[in-house]
C-alpha cells in the first residue's frame, strides 16, 4: 500500500492543519512521509543516528516554512528537496569525509587515444548478479567506497532520480560540472564493479 498516495483534498487538509499548528496534522505528516525521508537520509549519510537528526531537522524546517509551500510542486517533492538539502549540509560538516582520488579507477587510453579495455567474453546481467547472496550489500559497499563528492552525485542522479538541474541547485555548481562529475563517478563505479560484472569475484 502506498502510504503517500493521498487524495489532493486530504493532502490539502493536512497542509492546512500543519499551517494551523495542529499537533495531529504534524504527527500525520511525519507518519506519512518520515519513512521514505529516513531512507533517503540514510542512503546519503550512511548513519542511522545522523539520518534521524536529518529527518527531524527537515520536518522542523518544513513546518516552519509551510507557508511558503504554494502547491506548485507536490508535497512529496517539496519534502524531498528539504531532506536532500539537510542531508547534504550534514555531509559537508562531517569530519571524516572520503576525499580519496578517483584516478586509478578511471578508464585508460594509450598514446594513440585508443581505449585499453580487456575483452569481455561474457557479461552478467544486473538481475542475475543480484540473485547471488549478499550482492546488494557488496554493491552498496562499492558505491560507498567512492569519494564523497562522486558518491553523492551518483546517489542524487541515479538513485534519487533528480534532474541535472536539481542536482546542480542542490550542490551549488553548474549543470556542466554535475555531468562531468557524474560521468567520472559512473566510470569509477564500473571499475569497482568490474570483477563482479566479469564473474571473476570471489563472491557467489
Amino acid at each position: 500500500m502506498d502510504k503517500c498516495k493521498t487524495e489532493d483534498v486530504s493532502e490539502h487538509q493536512l497542509i492546512e492543519g500543519v499551517r494551523a499548528g495542529q499537533d495531529i496534522a504534524v504527527s500525520e505528516l511525519v507518519k506519512l512521509h518520515g519513512g521514505w525521508m529516513l531512507a533517503v537520509a540514510q542512503r546519503l549519510l550512511r548513519d542511522r543516528a545522523l539520518a534521524e537528526d536529518c529527518v527531524q531537522e527537515s520536518f522542523i524546517r518544513a513546518t516552519q516554512n509551510i507557508d511558503s509551500f504554494e502547491g506548485r510542486s507536490t508535497l512529496k517533492s517539496w519534502l524531498h528537496r528539504i531532506v536532500i538539502n539537510s542531508a547534504l549540509m550534514k555531509l559537508r560538516s562531517k569530519n571524516r569525509r572520503n576525499e580519496s582520488s578517483l584516478d586509478q579507477l578511471l578508464p585508460v587510453f594509450d598514446a594513440n587515444d585508443c581505449r585499453i579495455e580487456r575483452p569481455w567474453h561474457d557479461i552478467e546481467t544486473p538481475e542475475k548478479i543480484l540473485l547471488r547472496a549478499n550482492m546488494k550489500n557488496i554493491i552498496t559497499e562499492k558505491i560507498n567506497a567512492l569519494p564523497d563528492g562522486y558518491r553523492v552525485v551518483i546517489l542524487l542522479r541515479d538513485i534519487e532520480e533528480m534532474s541535472t538541474r536539481e542536482v546542480a541547485e542542490a550542490l551549488e555548481c553548474s549543470e556542466g560540472a554535475v555531468k562531468v562529475r557524474l560521468h567520472r563517478a559512473r566510470a569509477a563505479l564500473k571499475s569497482l564493479l568490474e570483477p563482479i560484472l566479469r564473474g571473476e569475484d570471489e563472491n557467489g
Binding site: 544486473p126 554493491i139 541515479d158 563482479i196
Partner: peptide
C-alpha cells in the same frame, strides 16, 4: 571499436546494478 562497445555496456550495467541494489 570493440573496446568502447564493451566498455559502454559494462558502464550501463553498473548504473543499473547501483539502481537496483539501492
Amino acid at each position: 571499436c570493440r573496446e568502447c562497445r564493451e566498455y559502454l555496456t559494462a558502464y550501463q550495467h553498473s548504473i543499473e546494478l547501483g539502481r537496483i541494489a539501492f
